[in-house]
Simulated assay, not measured.
Amino acid sequence: MPTWDERFAAGEYPQNPEPSAVLREYVSSFPDGRALDVATGTGRNAVFLAESGYEVDALDQSREGLKVTRENAAEAGVEKRIEPIQADADTYEFPADRYAVITISYYRVLDRFPDIKEALVDGGVLFVEHHLRSTDGPLSGPSTDRYRFASNELLHACLDMTVLYYDETTTPHEGKHSATARIVARNTTGGRQSYPAVERGD
């Protein structure tokens, strides 16, 4: 099986994928500060966050993926806003109280959620999207359920935060079905809070 370096170098993985529409809709409500994109790949979220005004740490274990991220950032004119970090998200020591925004797209890292949440400042926001287990098929993404979220698993993992948005959807994708969970959650607690007024595109 090819490594991620080999996949990125061969162009097997999308070289400049779009960030989620949900992230686009909510980003204007996120707090100011530094951002972290976990498992950045080719910079799906990192470049978008930099374009939105954030200084971004782009974390990935793949040297080739980070190379493409830097190229995409340069093309967008935001290369000075992105700090590449070559490290494995499974073992990386996330700094506490560091980030206003943390994004994770299509990387299952539930066992590191406590450390990732601690890396958020008070009021910081976590955005996650990832593949779901589904009876709809055939499915795009991981070949086995081991690397997919079960129904409501992502939601339950964030119930110690304020959930601002959550969905589980299935959409057609290149002749298959793409089953995806998405969440926007804020590092706050309490039964009485403020909530962003977000104009949804759907």
Rank of each mutant, 00 (worst) to 15 (best):
H156Y: 15
V38R: 00
E75G: 14
E174R: 15
E153L: 00
A58I: 06
S62I: 00
R70G: 11
S28E: 15
T3N: 07
D111H: 14
A89S: 11
L132E: 00
R7G: 08
A50V: 03
R186P: 00
V101L: 07
D5C: 07
I183E: 01
S140L: 00
T180I: 02
G124K: 02
A35L: 10
N187L: 05
T3S: 14
S105P: 09
A21Q: 13
E174P: 05
Y92R: 07
G11K: 08
D145P: 03
T91M: 00
T103H: 08
F113R: 02
V78G: 02
V121G: 08
A181P: 05
L154M: 09
P31E: 07
R146L: 11
N16C: 14
F48C: 09
A119M: 07
F48S: 05
G41M: 06
E18H: 11
D122K: 15
T162Q: 15
S140G: 03
R24S: 12
A39Y: 04
K176G: 01
L59I: 00
E199V: 15
W4T: 08
A89N: 06
Y13M: 13
E93T: 13
F8P: 05
L164D: 13
T91V: 04
R112W: 08
G43T: 06
Y92W: 14
H177A: 10
V101K: 03
L49W: 01
F127L: 03
D5K: 07
E6H: 01
S20Y: 01
P17F: 07
D136T: 10
I104Q: 10
T91C: 01
F149I: 03
A39H: 04
L120I: 10
R44H: 01
E153Y: 00
A96E: 15
Q86L: 09
E71K: 13
I104H: 06
E25A: 15
P114L: 09
A150P: 06
R34K: 15
G43F: 00
G175R: 02
E12Y: 11
P95F: 08
A9V: 09
Y165L: 07
A179L: 01
L110D: 08
G191I: 10
A39Q: 05
R112F: 09
R133D: 11
A197G: 11
Y26W: 12
G124A: 09
S52Y: 04
F48I: 07
E79C: 10
A50P: 02
Y13D: 12
I85C: 07
D57K: 06
